[in-house]
Write a protein that binds this DNA or RNA. Structure first.
Lengths: 364, 364
DNA sequence: ATCGCTTGGGAAAACCTTTTCCATATTGCC
DNA sequence: GGCAATATGGAAAAGGTTTTCCCAAGCGAT
């Protein structure tokens, strides 16, 4: 192993990597021939091919992908630009995305702009220089982000878990509305009639979408929504506890179910209910949103929760991006189905069977 | 904006990006001159420079980084290989790393091997082809991972938040032992004398290191460790609650302080103590580890906790990598200091002042 | 008017690989 | 033995950029 001599290497420098020229020299052939042997391309004697491959192995040769890309049309790289610093929602998406793209031999340049437009522009410039074949943008979800300026529409751009106004862009999001409806359907199906919705700050689009889903389900069941039962606050456990104090502190008829905007609120609510002497799910059923294991499984009892299927979202993003790089034109907003994971906080009985999953219909 | 004609573009294809040849043609100069103008390199008339820059702007020209790297020695990219899927510990590290490298114009290829040695090898091969200038490896921390095989030691490799046996490699880790001692010192300094340690599975090196730090602090204070006070279990809230039941259920003299191996254990313990009618910190002080906001801030009361300063770790990793790319030879295990963040779970009184921070000494 | 210097800009090599086209050598056939 | 056809491998261009080297023109000085 390792046959490259260290003659002339200055202290501290790393040895130059073998080129196809070195391989050709060692095999005693021309570089064109070496290339053909390594790529099984031209018509060569088996003996020659073997010689070249042996030489390449001896030298630990790896073809220089940049030189290759230079006259392929593709660089086989894409950029991922996150606006928010990488958060817990982005991780599963990224993981699935990386997996999907790696299957196609595509590598990912990872950039983080932390909401600084200037840094964002620098990153985009750098990525353009790298000749990425496509760009994937994720951001905090509160606001629609301004579109990325790609000169001359020279490559496909996908916004995932984030949205923009550019009508030519493709945006991939979870179906918050459908997911919420799924949760409330389930609560109603298990006999609850007074379902309250405790959720996060109204500035989030997700909050209004989930509220819509909540209304959808109530309407479908012939129940009339009650304004006392809609409570918006922070995305925190503390708010979940506060909301329970408000809802169960007298003055209004207490709900028999809580659909919470996220798992932290749900967990806070569950804690507060227990501390009030109310049984979950006996007296009040609770369903959260996000299916964040750290919260949902640690809560007492474990929380039923809506799963946004972020892994599937990431995989879909990868597939769409590959399709677009291949020339397909996709645009618009695509919402992918959520699932409901039922655990004890909404079940009649503690269940031991694997939690059933229901899916929202995929909406385009 | 965007002057490149769309003549001859097939449906679905993306327009070719402008090259320096296009710029030169538009400015009426040779490509060599165009290059010099854009890089402020040769001796050119100001007028010529202006013409070239104008042409480049018109065309939205970005130099092809791959072509540039072809005859620079540097590709200005590094690889990041995670072994564990990206977890919550890796995120802050990555963020700081990205920030540090971006400041130096270095881009990151992100790879995830999910513990599959074959996928890992594929990724390394791909990265070698991309001619990355350096490689950064992170992994789950339980075990020392086998070293990455880089043919001919042709580039620097850093293991961050993970360790390997390769004596030539540099490993960057938090100083678990010092961090633990910091926590226990603090408990002792605030008057606690019976400090128990409730921690995670013994297979984790971090568990034994933190235990060492716990012993260090006790010894320093002239307290003799009591074996009943060392409890190892899972990294979960449930285990924190169980441990409290064991420690306070009778049979042994109850401790007056708990130093927990992570924040989840600490939170579970705090909950269990409260439910037993014991005041935190009045009767029992609690300190966690990780300073994971989701746990530490949501606990009642908010948890004092040891912070591993992962952001600093990521930044250090970036800086070391840049130094090594520059030719410096670094190796061995470097442990970076942890901090203690004091909140109410260990304070005498609820404090309103910003939490003080103490740092462990940096050990090399 | 000639020499030498400075200034401005072009030509071409180099970086690494692939691919097309050609040249040589070998074989088969008449 | 001479020809064509095939098998094999080389030469060179292309891809985009930087950089070195060189040439031409303009200038002042003698």
């Amino acid at each position: 192993m390792g046959g490259s001599g260290d003659k002339g290497v200055e202290a501290g420098a790393y040895p130059a990597r073998a080129t196809i020229r070195d391989v050709a020299a060692r095999a005693g052939v021309s570089i064109g021939t070496a290339s053909k042997a390594l790529n099984a391309n031209g018509r060569l004697k088996q003996d020659t091919i073997d010689k070249v491959i042996a030489a390449a192995n001896d030298l630990g040769f790896r073809p220089n992908a940049m030189a290759q890309s230079l006259h392929r049309t593709r660089s086989m790289t894409v950029g991922v630009l996150t606006n928010d610093s990488f958060g817990r929602f982005i991780f599963p998406i990224l993981e699935a995305l990386e997996e999907t793209l790696a299957e196609h031999g595509i590598a990912i340049f990872m950039c983080n702009a932390t909401d600084d437009p200037q840094r964002e522009q620098q990153h985009v410039d750098q990525l353009l220089g790298k000749r990425i074949d496509g760009l994937l943008v994720t951001a905090r979800r509160m606001d629609r982000r301004p579109p990325i300026a790609v000169p001359g529409k020279s490559m496909p751009v996908i916004y995932v878990f984030s949205q923009t106004d550019d009508p030519d862009a493709l945006c991939l999001l979870p179906d918050d509305r459908g997911g919420a409806a799924l949760a409330v359907d389930h609560l109603i199906a298990t006999g609850r009639r007074r379902v309250a919705h405790v959720t996060g700050p109204t500035e989030f689009e997700a909050v209004s979408l989930r509220y819509q889903g909540y209304l959808d389900a109530l309407t479908r069941a012939g129940l009339s929504p009650q304004s006392d039962y809609y409570r918006s606050g922070a995305w925190s456990e503390a708010w979940g506890r506060d909301a329970v104090a408000q809802l169960f502190g007298g003055g209004i008829e207490p709900p028999d179910a809580l659909f919470c905007g996220n798992d932290q609120i749900a967990r806070g609510a569950a804690d507060a209910l227990r501390e009030r002497g109310l049984a979950v799910p006996g007296d009040v059923a609770v369903v959260g949103f996000d299916n964040w294991d750290v919260m949902a499984l640690a809560a007492r009892p474990p929380l039923s929760s809506v799963d946004m299927n972020l892994h599937a979202l990431g995989r879909a993003a990868g597939e769409r991006l590959i399709a677009m790089i291949g020339g397909e034109r996709l645009a618009g907003v695509e919402r992918l189905p959520c699932s409901l994971v039922v655990r004890q906080s909404s079940g009649e009985e503690p269940q031991s069977a694997p939690a059933p999953k229901f899916q929202t219909n995929k909406t385009s």
